[in-house]
Design a protein around this nucleic acid. Structure first.
Length: 274
DNA sequence: TTCCAGGTGCATA
DNA sequence: TATGCACATGGA
């Protein structure tokens, strides 16, 4: 997987890693294309990623951060091998074979997925970029995602002006609630307890909580059910409109591989089948 | 014009 | 506990 690590660069081969699939499978909103390269941002870190014929060159001042971020030390061929015994996974695994689940910044993920609720990806990205530009720190020509402390000055009116719509009031409220939320300690909690804690936050329901657990806390025993997973379930399994029931049945089926399975299925359903 | 987007919160029974 | 509806906004 990792071919070499230098002070400002990581070289990774393309086995079990496709950058476009990983970025465009809906788990992250903080990236964009610059010329032929991709710029990927996370909290106050930046990487400029160049694609070569047989590898990617991840240019960054913080290589260790992005090794963790892209989960480059996990063996995805083993995960895919385990998932391939499920017949429903055959096509999704083939279609999204280069997806990796990112390990994103917790605060940024909480804010991002509150914005994502009942929203489209284009508008979500636009809103989050404005938050960066207005409250983040300048890193070269880019902006960091603000910390809780840096974003404290933002209120409902500000978020509404950005186009956050009715989520603006959730965002103002959640900033206050997060002052009493110890992120470092929360990492130690068991999934179910942490899930309940997240759901108690404004603008965070079952689906957003599951996305935060999967994309920021790396919990694999969750299965976020959104409009696309509901469509997928109705197509591949049975007719059902109760998302909580769908979630429980899929977790029963995939167990500790639920998070991975969800992402391959989501990407396949949303990008390929529609 | 109407429908939909990686849903949540709240009232009601 | 379960169901139904309101909620901003912009693209298709």
């Amino acid at each position: 997987m990792i071919k070499s690590i230098e002070k400002t660069k990581i070289i990774v081969d393309k086995e079990d890693f496709n950058l476009v699939q990983t970025l465009e499978c809906g788990q992250v909103f903080s990236y964009f294309k610059e010329n032929e390269n991709f710029i990927v941002q996370s909290a106050d870190k930046v990487a400029n990623i160049e694609e070569k014929e047989d590898c990617y060159i991840i240019n960054t001042n913080t290589p260790e951060y992005f090794i963790n971020y892209f989960d480059l030390t996990t063996d995805y061929s083993l995960i895919k091998k385990k998932l391939s015994k499920y017949s429903v996974m055959k096509e999704p695994l083939n279609y999204g074979s280069g997806i990796r689940i990112l390990k994103q910044d917790i605060f940024e993920t909480i804010i991002s997925f509150i914005v994502s609720a009942n929203n489209n990806i284009k508008r979500i990205t636009k809103i989050l970029n404005k938050i960066r530009e207005n409250f983040g720190k300048r890193i070269g020509k880019y902006y960091s995602f603000p910390t809780l402390n840096e974003l404290k000055g933002a209120n409902e009116e500000y978020f509404a002006k950005l186009g956050a719509g009715y989520r603006a009031k959730y965002l103002e409220k959640v900033l206050k609630e997060l002052e009493n939320f110890d992120i470092e300690k929360s990492k130690e909690l068991p999934t179910e307890e942490l899930r309940n804690k997240l759901i108690s936050l404004s603008g965070v329901g079952p689906k957003v909580a599951d996305c935060i657990l999967l994309f920021a806390y790396s919990r694999q025993d969750v299965f976020p059910v959104d409009t696309w997973i509901e469509k997928m379930y109705n197509q591949f399994y049975e007719s059902c409109s109760n998302r909580n029931l769908i979630r429980k049945k899929l977790i029963d089926e995939f167990g500790n591989l639920s998070g991975y399975a969800q992402q391959y299925l989501f990407y396949y359903k949303r990008s390929y089948l529609k």
